[in-house]
Design a protein around this nucleic acid. Structure first.
Lengths: 348, 348
DNA sequence: CTGAAAGCGCTAACAG
DNA sequence: CTGTTAGCGCTTTCAG
């Protein structure tokens, strides 16, 4: 017998109804289980369905139900390990609730982000998760948030008053500084990502505040983009300065990885002559050499939390606004150590 | 004046038609540009569109046009850097042709893959790109390929005769072996991923064939899964054996990274006491310590090629089947070196 | 150049 | 328990 169990596009609910000798309404109901159908007819319908290889057309269903069961996500870059984890966490949670995710890479560009958002709106996604670009259109995002469930993740845009999932950047930086200062460092520098991003801003503030609490001040602060290359460049500049840091605090792991690279190029041993702290604790932090000490902030959990928030909002559009803050923690590895005596001497 | 340029869901083409004093057909035509519209009316329509913040409902459009402008992708895991790059390459190419991508992680499980495929079918995606799971349902994939454009990427399922983008695994392994043997290695082992995957199979064949061409035989061959942890385990077992390899050839970089980790744990220096070769050349290969020598096979390019193939197929469903094979190349770094004399002595 | 109207495939009242 | 039917919002003939 021929295998007819495979999907066959083009067959409609009408075909099934005819084959089973029932009305389309009945077929619809056996599919959705929305109302009772006599076992015998249900059988016949199901038989017809598999016989014809019928697959309900969800776009038609979406049109009548005016919901698509799809969620749009716009993130800077899937190839960035932090966002890859984030999108993975979100899609796992969403999948469990029968949503499918469409996504777009903004490359941190407001223009691309805006285009994807419009695209997703036109496709009538049920909700959106966005990790805003540096020059995000805060107004568009605010307006959108009033039209449909939208949760911001990892980063906040000015004036955003909706659902939100972020890490506690200031607390994270305090962890980093406490560790470094505890080891005896007094000459600490910060290398940072795009200054317009809330994460960059908050981490800088946290950095400076934590230092001040110890009666210290930053020896240097610079910014660029959240990438390995930028980290390398910023570190090279800093390490070439007259008075160089004994420790570099990076606002994310990619920057820290770049810092490691710079130290290597300049012949500085880490952590012997220079300590380097990362942030995020992506998978490769523990693979770097030396293994990177980092402030952990799991992308997977952040993405999953955002998805859960969105799902709740979808269920209860009127509910109270929620803001979940992920607590960072410190992961000690091999890239930090007490400063070497020579460098310390210069401090006193 | 109030800003009405923002998207306002719920307004339909009918609302626009009423506001502009024209018929819905006309509105449709100014939107699609499908036919000439008198400038004056076009103006009025456009004015009404922005005035009302109208955004065409693409699901309705999809229903009538019976195409969705969306592509489904199912891959093992976005969080795997190789696939993250692959999906990035594909989505960049697809975006340029105005497609949006929905994706699903199969975790290398046939069951999850099958579910996503059905889901995508029901959503009437215009085409599908899949990197099949280890225990993929070859029959389902074949059947699907007859129903709509489907390109297989990175891996092949048995009996697949459709569009395909893969790396030349045998050639890649030959490159690796030539390099290692050229350095004087005679005791070479292979650590591999899931044996059912075509990539694992082809790489093993390439490995053995290349050795045989040099009148050599593998000192050991094992398989597990394409992950860091599995690489670590396989390497530990091998390095604990009576006669240990002077070089380990890994079937991908994650395995190689695990191998590095194992060597470190066992106190073996790389490349001093052990050489390690990777495959794929993911971004982190150059960040590892020592920096990983690897057979390069860019995920981004592979994904982009798959997308281009799919786009061509969408334009010309009847065209000839295409198979693009990405040529691998060798990237020499610091994880391989001639075997140390002691080990060599044991060989002679 | 423009309007009217027939669907696209499904859901959800509304009648029986 | 089941059938009929009016849409969902848009595209696309077919007439003018």
């Amino acid at each position: 017998m021929v295998d007819r169990t495979r999907a066959k596009l083009g067959t409609t609910i009408k075909d099934v109804a005819d084959a089973a000798g029932v009305s389309v309404g009945t077929v619809s109901h056996v599919i959705s289980g929305a109302r009772q159908v006599r076992p015998a007819t249900r059988e016949r319908v199901n038989a017809a369905i598999t016989e014809l290889g019928f697959r309900p057309n969800r776009v038609a269903r979406s049109l009548t139900r005016s919901r698509t069961s799809t969620i749009g996500m716009v993130i800077p870059d899937v190839a960035n390990p932090f966002f890859a984890q984030l999108i993975r966490g979100a899609s796992d949670a969403l999948e469990a609730s029968d949503y499918v995710v469409v996504f777009g890479n903004s490359d941190n560009l407001g223009a691309k982000e805006r285009r994807y958002l419009v695209e997703f709106i036109e496709r009538r996604v049920d909700g959106v998760i966005v990790a805003p670009a540096s020059n995000a259109d805060a107004e568009q995002i605010r307006d959108l948030g009033e039209q449909l469930p939208l949760v911001l993740v990892d980063r906040v845009t000015p004036g955003w008053l909706g659902d939100l999932v972020v890490g506690d950047d200031q607390a994270g930086m305090a962890l980093a500084i406490d560790h470094l200062v505890g080891q005896g460092h007094r000459q600490i520098a910060l290398i940072n990502g795009e200054g317009e991003l809330s994460t960059a801003r908050e981490r800088r503030i946290g950095f400076e505040r934590a230092l001040r609490a110890r009666d210290l001040a930053a020896i240097a602060v610079s910014e660029g983009s959240f990438s390995i290359e930028s980290g390398r460049e910023q570190a090279i500049t800093m390490l070439g300065a007259e008075v160089r840091p004994t420790a570099i605090c990076a606002a994310n792991d990619l920057l820290a990885l770049g810092g490691l690279q710079a130290a290597h190029e300049l012949g500085l041993s880490v952590p012997g002559q220079l300590s380097v702290m990362g942030y995020d604790d992506i998978a490769y932090a523990s693979l770097a050499s030396p293994r990177l000490t980092s402030v952990s902030q799991p992308g997977y959990a952040i993405g999953a939390a955002a998805a859960r928030l969105l799902i709740e909002r979808l269920r209860d559009p009127g509910g109270a606004r929620q803001e979940v803050v992920i607590r960072p923690s410190l992961v000690l590895r091999d890239s930090t150590a007490p400063p070497d005596p020579g460098a310390l001497g210069r401090t006193g």
